[in-house]
Computed example of a mutant assay.
Amino acid sequence: MDVREQIDRHISGLPPAKSAELRDLHQRILHISPDVRLWFLDGRNDDGKLVTNPDIGYGSETLRYADGGSRAFYKIGLSATASGLSLYVMGLEDKAWLAETYGSRIGKARVTGYCIRFRSIRDLDLRVFDEVVADALGR
């Protein structure tokens, strides 16, 4: 199964309201960057145990670790959580930048060093969401 099929299956398997919102945000991101590299992480560890929420990833970033190692990963991630949805922006060196740049404009959301958490897309200023995505993907 290719990554698009995995993403579609994941989104379709969510409760209807959350599925509709995640699908809407997924389509918004693809509209902003139609040729973006897609990732799907199912949230399972090497033993097949579910250890985190599944993520849809977009773009490509090289993550560097303190021990000198590195690996390819997505630039932004989108995840459905028990309390809503989350957008992750990876590879930010300045952990205050996301909150300082978008926190006061994004709407009713909690903005941390690399994550924007919100209950529903109705709580967001979607123009600002689009700005975050375009900025993170370099478009």
Results as ranks from 00 to 15, higher is better:
I32S: 01
D47Q: 12
G57N: 03
R37A: 02
Y58P: 01
W39Q: 03
E61H: 11
G59D: 01
L41A: 09
D47H: 11
D42H: 07
S33H: 11
N53I: 05
A72Q: 08
K49W: 06
R44A: 11
N53P: 00
P34S: 06
R64G: 00
D47C: 00
L63V: 13
A72C: 00
L25H: 02
D55N: 13
S70A: 14
L22Y: 10
E61G: 00
G57M: 06
D24H: 15
N45C: 06
G43C: 09
S33M: 02
R71K: 15
R44L: 08
R28F: 07
P34K: 08
L25D: 01
L22C: 06
G48W: 12
L63R: 11
A20K: 15
R64S: 06
D35E: 15
D24C: 06
R23E: 08
G48S: 02
R23C: 01
R71H: 07
R64I: 12
D55T: 13
R23F: 12
V51R: 03
D67Y: 14
G59V: 04
G68R: 09
R37T: 12
L38C: 05
I56N: 02
D47I: 04
D55R: 15
I32D: 00
I29K: 01
L30Q: 08
V51Q: 06
L30K: 12
Y58F: 14
L25Q: 07
Y65S: 04
L38V: 08
G68S: 03
L38M: 11
L41P: 00
Y65A: 02
E61P: 00
P54M: 13
S33Q: 07
D35M: 06
S70P: 02
L30E: 01
I32R: 05
I29W: 05
D46F: 08
T52M: 11
Q27L: 14
L30S: 01
D24P: 00
F40I: 07
R37D: 02
V36P: 01
N45S: 07
T52H: 08
I32M: 01
D46N: 09
L22A: 09
L63T: 11
L22P: 01
L50Y: 04
S70D: 09
G43D: 05
V36K: 05
Q27V: 10
D55A: 12
Y58L: 02
V36F: 07
S33F: 06
H26Y: 15
D67Q: 07
R64V: 14
F40R: 14
I29P: 00
R64W: 10
T52R: 13
P54H: 14
L41C: 01
W39H: 14
L50E: 13
G69W: 07
L25K: 03
R64Q: 08
D42Q: 04
R23V: 09
D46C: 00
D67M: 12
D55M: 15
G69I: 04
S33P: 00
L63F: 09
N53K: 12
L50P: 03
L30Y: 04
L50V: 15
K49L: 11
G57I: 07
D42C: 03
N45T: 13
Q27F: 10
R37G: 00
I56S: 02
P54N: 07
L25G: 00
